[in-house]
Design a protein around this nucleic acid. Structure first.
Lengths: 192, 192
DNA sequence: TTAAAAAGTGCAATGACTACACTTTTGAAG
DNA sequence: CTTCAAAAGTGTAGTCATTGCACTTTTTAA
């Protein structure tokens, strides 16, 4: 199933070297204080090659986003019977957040992103893209047309809530409050 | 009250020339196809001067934002008695949207922003900033502490809703749906 | 009248990103 | 095993937004 030839392996390895170099340098000295050239040097590739693997400097930090998106959709689709969609999303975000809190690097990573405007913007853009997939997943789940406004709205509100949740310390309580807000309106004239 | 000396007047005039030149060129040829140099030339100022008036190329298009923010806060604060806050916000956005729909330039402007990623990102960042003022206004209105999570959430959801609303044609219906979602949750354990 | 603050200028630099023309490596077909 | 086209990588030179600097010209206010 995963038939990777030498070529593909080397390519992935190069990509990984670049991403690793970037992460280390960014964490050590901050996003704006590190130039693309320096990252390329440390990964022992040319700047041109770096940009063949990543579309922008910001992208160097955000790699595993198909997984994130798949997990998000799965959280909605595979939620336990009887659980509402907002509930499922709330639980998903909380579990992701606490999972990450284990990883010691992660706190630093979040801090880096939060403190760098251009990274925040980039991350938001990525989330927005996930918004449409999430909206589709929700729509399918309740048997609505894929571009249903209600579903699109819930999706965007939920992603917005995630943004707020990750920025706070008292996640549990915040999540409860925000998704509570959505839960009632969602349940009002919709079952599931 | 509005004591503007010659100096201030000239400064404003320069600023306006730049903004005008930028708007014309961007509308005519698109954001990415117009260089800062060209704008400066048309406004008959140096590039250096341009950047003394505006912090970035994107900022050339978004000028009147203190007004926007003030109007937003006012919409909440001065809403008719008995009207809920989500209702007030919904009405505000709809009236702004239809007001703008009159102005023929505005449709083109919206189109320009929607179709240029870097402009969308910039606009979102501006809205986020308004989010905190709006949250404060809401909190004050219901007598909550200024950093109340519930209010911050409602504020962000509302601004998100605005984003969706402006991107659609059937604004009225969309607004009804989205703010309906918020209305119920908001009313659930909160009066006003 | 005059000196300091503000507005504007041109120049040179930085840093992200791209186009280009080039070399090396690799997969696969014969 | 040879060969050859695609893929991966390189270096150079460029564009474009943005900033620092040292400078000139206004404008204000004492």
């Amino acid at each position: 199933m995963t038939e990777l030839g030498r070529r593909e392996r080397k390519k992935l390895q190069t990509r990984q070297s670049i991403a690793d170099a970037a992460l280390e340098l960014f964490l050590a000295r901050g996003f704006d204080a590190v130039g693309v050239k320096e990252i390329a040097d440390r990964a022992d590739v040319s700047v041109t090659t770096l940009f063949k693997h990543f579309p922008s400097k910001e992208a160097l930090l955000f790699d595993e986003d198909e997984e994130t998106e798949a997990a998000l959709v799965a959280a909605v689709r595979d939620r336990p019977a009887g659980q509402s969609i907002p509930q499922a999303l709330k639980n998903h975000f909380l579990s992701v957040a606490t999972n990450h809190a284990d990883h010691p690097l992660f706190a630093t990573f979040v801090q880096l992103v939060e403190s760098t405007p251009s990274l925040r913007a980039y991350q938001r853009a990525l989330w927005l893209r996930q918004g449409t997939s999430l909206a589709h997943a929700i729509a399918e789940e309740i048997g609505a047309p894929p571009d249903d406004v209600r579903c699109a709205g819930l999706a965007r509100f939920a992603l917005e809530a995630r943004d707020v949740i990750f920025g706070r310390q008292d996640r549990e309580k915040v999540a409860e409050t925000l998704f509570g807000l959505l839960e009632h309106g969602w349940a009002a004239d919709q079952q599931s």
